[in-house]
């Protein structure tokens, strides 16, 4: 609109053409200046560090002295020599595979339960949402000690011991169980997020569709869900799988708090590996970070492609 305004001014000879181009350039600069503070900060603290990570991944550096170029040696180290890196990939993938379906699934279940209006709906929604607002540190500490199998057993292992059942010792020997405990905590903490997005998705479904379906002979709740809600929720499900996969890929805090990466590295995730190495083997840590970055990009690309096709299919 402002461009037209200036053109009008030229036509009516209020400003000359040269003044016009000067005025328009000024407008552009003014407009651009609104983005400057954010862009400068993004360039310094987001774009530059990405380049820095990649650069460091080709250097040998222990933070003392100066970095030295060593080509692909760091990648060679993490991929073929340091079994801890491959183990951390395994731990991360296992966590993603367990954590994403459980939190999305529970979120969907909760959303369906409280979809319709009934007395107490807001209360239940608040209860399921509540774990989302506390920190992973707080949640992690509580679950760590509720399930503790150490010298001071937590309430669940102790209660099972009274019944003569031995709780798997996730804090000292059973690495898989340690993963399960973190997944339980994560599901409890994060299901509310999926629930809210599913509720929004369910509310956007046109009620006429259900009515039409009941005329077509779809009567029970399961069929309504299977043939109407579920297909229409595909975009929500896709979004949740993408966000939660990327989120779970980055998991560090729950493991740092609850398992410290153990027992024997079974729960040392990728970010944990980077954290463990960044001070002494910066090159190795940044090579891992670079691969991680590539993986996140690949996951996003693949999932975007898949979701496009799926949406076209429905």
């Amino acid at each position: 609109m402002e461009i037209q305004q200036v053109q009008e001014q030229v036509k009516t000879k209020i400003v000359s053409p040269r003044q016009r181009s000067w005025k328009m350039a000024l407008r552009q600069i003014q407009a651009f200046s609104f983005t400057m503070p954010a862009l400068v900060l993004l360039a310094i603290f987001l774009i530059y560090p990405i380049g820095y990570v990649v650069y460091l991944s080709f250097q040998r550096w222990d933070l003392l002295g100066s970095p030295a170029f060593i080509g692909l040696q760091n990648y060679n180290t993490i991929l073929f020599k340091d079994s801890a890196f491959l183990q951390s990939i395994g731990a991360t993938v296992l966590f993603v595979v367990l954590a994403v379906p459980t939190q999305v699934g529970l979120g969907l279940f909760l959303a369906i339960l409280i979809e319709n209006k009934f007395r107490g709906r807001t209360f239940f929604r608040a209860v399921f949402f509540l774990p989302l607002v506390i920190s992973f540190v707080a949640a992690g500490i509580v679950y760590q000690w509720m399930f503790s199998t150490g010298a001071t057993p937590g309430i669940f292992p102790a209660a099972l011991a009274n019944l003569g059942i031995k709780f798997p010792d996730w804090q000292h020997t059973n690495g898989f169980m340690a993963m399960i405990i973190v997944v339980i905590m994560n599901t409890w903490k994060s299901a509310g997020f999926s629930m809210i997005l599913y509720l929004a998705g369910l509310q956007s479904i046109n009620p006429d569709l259900y009515e039409a379906a009941s005329i077509d002979g779809i009567r029970n709740a399961w069929q309504r869900f299977r043939f109407i809600s579920w297909p229409l929720l595909v975009p929500t499900t896709t979004l949740l799988i993408i966000t939660n996969t990327i989120g779970s890929f980055q998991a560090f805090v729950p493991f740092y708090v609850m398992t410290n990466g153990g027992p024997s590295g079974a729960t040392t995730t990728l970010i944990f590996y980077i954290y463990n190495n960044f001070a002494n083997r910066t090159g190795v840590a940044t090579a891992a970070a670079t691969l991680f970055l590539l993986a996140v990009l690949a996951i996003t690309a693949v999932q975007l492609l898949v979701s496009r096709r799926r949406q076209a299919y429905y």
Partner: peptide
Amino acid sequence: LHFFGRDVLFLLILATLIIPFEVLFVPLYL
């Protein structure tokens, strides 16, 4: 507002949405 390269710039910002602090803490610390 209208300025040169606006939409390309915005797409670039959108693309950085997926880059987490967890990958950048090493260079940021340094």
